[in-house]
């Protein structure tokens, strides 16, 4: 289980990127983080990945406290971040140096097959399309068999069609080792397609606004009514999250007035 306890991040310039985030994610659960730009989604993933340090609070993975990159936690960034001097296969194998050569080869070949890039394994990243590069990046994270996989808007730069096929690739890979997945996205459809739970976030400072379970049966039928209903629910929550600051201000003033009164 992955749990975040009172997680707070204040950047050196005083930006309050995250304030008191509490969240636990079950094993094998897929959680989608949704929220407007700048509400701290990337910051949150970087903290869990151990790339940045929290200002307060703790991140725990099965009773282990995370303060630096952990072997059981993998991340796919918003950009593919492939190493341009390595072939596709070597990029996928990048994190597998500790394994024996045959085992490494087997895992890489299997992953490339799953993402449909087996015939491209000897090419350079520069010769791949954007969607293919993103698939390689996902395979690179998956082959290390992490217990927790963090995905930071991995499909946001792609067209709807490519995105839909990548969702399928992602789910087939996920089926094999069933890692816990934390997926950041701007796309409500994407969240409802993939996640078991949607977490709606709010900016300034970044915090959790609402949580919505998405307990639809898999594989999910994107044209069905339950899917539509879920999308609408998440959209409504997202709308509220963007509007509340205006509504909350008077309430905040009331509270302060009340405090003065007392």
């Amino acid at each position: 289980m992955l749990s975040l306890e009172h997680l707070t991040k204040i950047y050196a310039d005083g930006t309050r990127a995250l304030a008191d985030i509490n969240l636990s994610v079950r094993e094998s659960e897929i959680v989608a983080l949704i929220g407007g730009s700048g509400c701290g989604k990337t910051t949150l993933l970087r903290l869990i990945a151990g790339l940045d340090k929290a200002s307060a609070g703790a991140i725990r993975l099965d009773d282990e406290t995370i303060t630096e990159p952990h072997p059981a936690i993998g991340i796919v960034f918003q950009e593919p971040r492939l190493l341009p001097w390595l072939s596709v296969a070597d990029n996928v194998a990048f994190g597998l140096e500790a394994l024996s050569t045959p085992e490494r080869k087997a895992r890489v070949e299997h992953a490339l097959e799953k993402i449909g890039l087996a015939e491209h394994e000897r090419r350079w990243p520069r010769d791949l399309s954007g969607g293919q590069q993103q698939r390689v990046a996902i395979a690179r994270a998956f082959v290390a068999h992490p217990k927790v996989l963090l995905l930071d808007e991995p499909f946001s730069a792609l067209d709807a069609f490519t995105r839909a096929s990548l969702h399928e690739h992602l789910l087939t890979l996920w089926e094999e080792t069933r890692p816990t997945v934390v997926l950041v996205t701007h796309d409500v459809q994407e969240a409802v397609t993939l996640a078991d739970r949607a977490i709606v976030m709010q900016p300034k400072p970044g915090r959790i606004f609402d949580e919505l379970p998405l307990s639809l049966a898999r594989p999910r039928d994107k044209t069905g009514l339950p899917f539509e209903t879920s999308v609408r629910r998440v959209l409504t929550a997202l709308d509220h999250s963007l509007n509340t600051p205006h509504q909350e201000q008077p309430r905040e003033r009331d509270r302060q007035a009340a405090a003065l009164w007392w």
Binding site: G50, L51, P69, F77, E79, R81, L83, G95
Partner: peptide, 11 residues
């Protein structure tokens, strides 16, 4: 820095 982070993630 982005490529260096890839190395850090894999420790």
């Amino acid at each position: 820095r982005k490529l260096v982070e890839v190395g850090q993630v894999f420790r």
